[in-house]
Simulated assay, not measured.
Amino acid sequence: MLSLKLPRLLSIHQVPKGYREQGILFGYRPPRSSATDCLLSVFQMTNETLNIWTHFLPAWYFVWTLLGRLQGGWEDPQAWPLLAYLVTCCIYPLASSCAHTFSTMSCRARHLCYFCDYAALSTYSLGSALAYSAYVFPLEWVGSTFHHCYVPVAVFNTVVSTSLSCYSRFLEVESPRLSKAWRTLAFVYPYLFDSIPLFYRLYLCALEGCSEGSILLHYKHTGCALLTCFIFATHLPERLAPGTFDYIGHSHQVFHVCGILGTHFQMEAILRDMAERHSQVLLPSSLQTLCSMGVCVTGSLLVIGISSVSLPLIPEPPHRDKSH
């Protein structure tokens, strides 16, 4: 008979090194949990519970937005970059939520879950690039060499980003700081490249002034993105008070919230630009949009496959400290 009794939660010294989070002392789920235990833990207060819900619930908001846009007419070629972007907005929080839910089934499952999570984030960066290319590019750059190369470079960046972030997991046990640095780089540099046309627009508005309705939303999105990166890299606030934010308020939860808010502001800004500038930009064809997404997904799946086959190369962490 199936037992619904939830397993006892563990302290940081009772889980393998690869499962530990800096500044988080209690609330760890057992590292050999079953799939049922993982699903039930969603309704138990652990140090992962809010990580799961802060991405699971917003994902359905983006799904609702996507469905609304599909009802508005997916046949319109002007809408294809937007639809591709919205699909990636749905995928990355769902992938993250699933990764946090099932990451304690085994060491191998943990790595596989986060490989898929990283690939979804990289795909989201391409979705942003497709939307920026279609609706956000500075008008004086439309049709330029950079504009024509922008999406192909973004496709390349997504594959490199997935590769770097997956590779970072192979360094996690023996070189955690280097692993963190590689992972941060893997997501910061595609964002910086994607945002070049946006940063130029913000610079011109600050220098010369402008009345575009999307600019304030773009500023909000950029602020959230910078805050997201800062929180991810610094492990604040739990780094300053270990054990205080184990269940509520630690950096990964704040990181999730800031990331979702940033995506929301980005989506609203893109929709505003699409409405105001639709007759002034150079739109890619639906085939170009599909091909870009197809190459990105194929490349990311190939990276996940290679990384999965290479998992035996990752050193196994000791189950717990010898002193305990």
Rank of each mutant, 00 (worst) to 15 (best):
S3P: 07
L4A: 10
R8V: 15
L10R: 06
Q14Y: 02
P16T: 05
K17I: 13
L25H: 03
L25G: 00
F26N: 14
R32H: 14
D37K: 03
S41K: 00
M45V: 10
N47M: 04
L50F: 14
I52T: 01
W53Q: 00
L57R: 03
Y61N: 01
W64S: 04
W64F: 08
T65N: 06
R69K: 12
G73A: 08
E75M: 08
Q78W: 10
Y85M: 13
V87M: 10
C90R: 06
Y92S: 12
A99N: 03
A99Y: 04
A99K: 00
H100G: 02
H100I: 01
F102S: 02
T104M: 08
R110V: 00
L112R: 13
L112V: 12
L112A: 09
L121D: 05
S125P: 05
S128W: 04
S128V: 13
L130D: 09
Y132G: 06
V136I: 14
P138T: 11
L139V: 14
G143S: 11
V153H: 09
V155F: 07
V155G: 06
F156M: 10
L164M: 15
A181N: 11
R183F: 09
A186K: 05
Y189S: 12
Y189C: 12
S195D: 11
I196H: 09
F199M: 15
L202T: 12
C205P: 03
A206L: 14
S214N: 09
L217T: 03
K220N: 11
T222S: 15
L226Y: 12
T228M: 09
A233R: 01
E238D: 01
E238L: 00
P242Q: 03
P242E: 04
G243T: 07
T244V: 15
D246P: 06
I248L: 15
H252T: 01
F255S: 02
V257F: 04
G259A: 07
I260C: 03
T263V: 12
H264D: 05
H264E: 05
H264R: 11
R272M: 14
R272Q: 15
A275W: 13
S279G: 13
Q280L: 15
Q280K: 15
P284T: 13
S285Q: 10
S292V: 07
G294C: 07
V295Q: 05
V295I: 14
C296R: 05
T298F: 10
T298E: 04
G299D: 02
S300I: 07
L311D: 04
P312K: 07
L313K: 13
E316R: 15
E316T: 15
S323C: 05
H324D: 10
